[in-house]
Computed example of a mutant assay.
Amino acid sequence: MYEGAVQELIDELGRLPGVGPKSAQRIAFHILEADPEDMKRLSDAIRAVKERVKFCSICFNVSEQETCAICRDPRRDETVLCVVEESKDVMAVERTRSFRGRYHVLGGSINPIAGIGPDQLHIRELLNRLSDDRIEEIIIATDPNLEGEATATYLARMLKTIGIKVTRLASGLPVGGDLEYADEVTLGRAFEGRRSLIG
């Protein structure tokens, strides 16, 4: 245990996701030894992101303006809406360069253990967006884990009566993976989502 400011910094860094006690200590000592100007730029960047960044009033993606760049882009396909859990998922889909529609960020996934139900997510806002007659398909792109599956199932049941095509991203074996290392759920999904190679 260190004294004063050093221990406070380690404790705060340890609260970050994916940062354990040893990593927090390593980062804290890196900060102590780093050039003061570099650390000033880091603290300014953290302050700026907290002061300037907000959530898009349409899709809830991160933005420095009232609406995000994707919602402002008139070239995006308004007929397809991809529903994701977090803003980082928008960037993951965008990196594929294979989707040109619009997004809706839920702000998480249903997780009763963590006290997160449908009311804590942007599901009501999603339903409001569906009153737009231009939307023809909703792609549910939640994570392929227990919480993501629960969220996708909830959304699919709720959207069934609306009359809009609802699809789910395919899941299965990763490229370059080995069958022997795949878990049962992943392998089962791969069998369910198989496609014909002939014809």
Score class of each variant (00 low, 15 high):
Glu94Tyr: 07
Gly115Phe: 08
Arg194Trp: 07
Leu146Phe: 09
Val6Phe: 04
Gly4Ile: 11
Asn61Glu: 03
Asp77Ser: 06
His104Asn: 07
Glu149Gln: 09
Cys71Gly: 05
Phe60Gln: 06
Leu146Val: 09
Cys56Lys: 03
Lys165Met: 03
Pro118Asp: 02
His30Tyr: 15
Ala92Phe: 09
Ile10Tyr: 02
Leu197Arg: 14
Ala92Tyr: 06
Ala141Arg: 01
Arg95Cys: 03
Pro174Gln: 08
Ser63Asp: 07
Gly108Gln: 04
Ala190Val: 00
Ser63Cys: 07
Arg134Val: 12
Thr67Ile: 15
Gly20Ala: 08
Ser131Val: 07
Phe191Met: 15
Ile116Val: 15
Ile58His: 01
Arg157Ala: 09
Glu180Asp: 15
Ser171Cys: 11
Gly18Gln: 08
Ser131Met: 14
Thr161Met: 06
Phe55Pro: 02
Cys71Phe: 03
Glu192Leu: 13
Glu184Pro: 09
Thr167Glu: 03
His30Gly: 06
Arg76Gln: 10
Leu197Thr: 04
Arg157Lys: 13
Gly101Phe: 06
Ser23Met: 11
Asp38Lys: 14
Phe191Asp: 01
Arg26Asn: 07
Gly176Ser: 08
Gly199Glu: 14
Ser57Pro: 04
Ile164Lys: 03
Arg134Ile: 12
Gly14Lys: 02
Tyr103Pro: 03
Asp73Met: 08
Arg76Asn: 10
Leu127Thr: 11
Arg134Ala: 10
Gln120Pro: 04
Phe60Glu: 07
Gln65Thr: 13
Lys165Tyr: 04
Ile27Lys: 11
Leu126Lys: 03
Ala190Tyr: 06
Cys59Pro: 00
Ser57His: 13
Val166Glu: 00
Lys165Thr: 07
Gly108His: 02
Pro17His: 06
Asp132Gln: 10
Cys71Trp: 04
Glu8Ile: 09
Glu51Pro: 06
Thr161Cys: 03
Asp38Phe: 02
Arg102Trp: 08
Lys88Gln: 13
Ala92Lys: 09
Pro36Lys: 13
Val185Cys: 00
Leu173Cys: 10
Ile58Asp: 02
Val175Asn: 07
Leu179Asn: 06
Leu146Gln: 11
Leu179Thr: 03
Thr79Met: 00
Glu37Ile: 12
Val185Glu: 02
Met158Gln: 09
Leu197Ala: 12
Thr96Ile: 09
Cys71Asn: 09
Leu155Met: 10
Arg195Phe: 09
Ala24Tyr: 03
Ile162Asp: 00
Ala170Glu: 08
Tyr2Ser: 08
Asn61Ala: 11
Asn128Val: 12
Glu137Ala: 04
Leu159Ser: 01
Gly107Arg: 05
Val185Pro: 01
Gly18Trp: 04
Pro118Ile: 08
Thr161Ile: 00
Gly172Met: 08
Ile162Arg: 00
Arg41Met: 14
Gly199Ala: 10
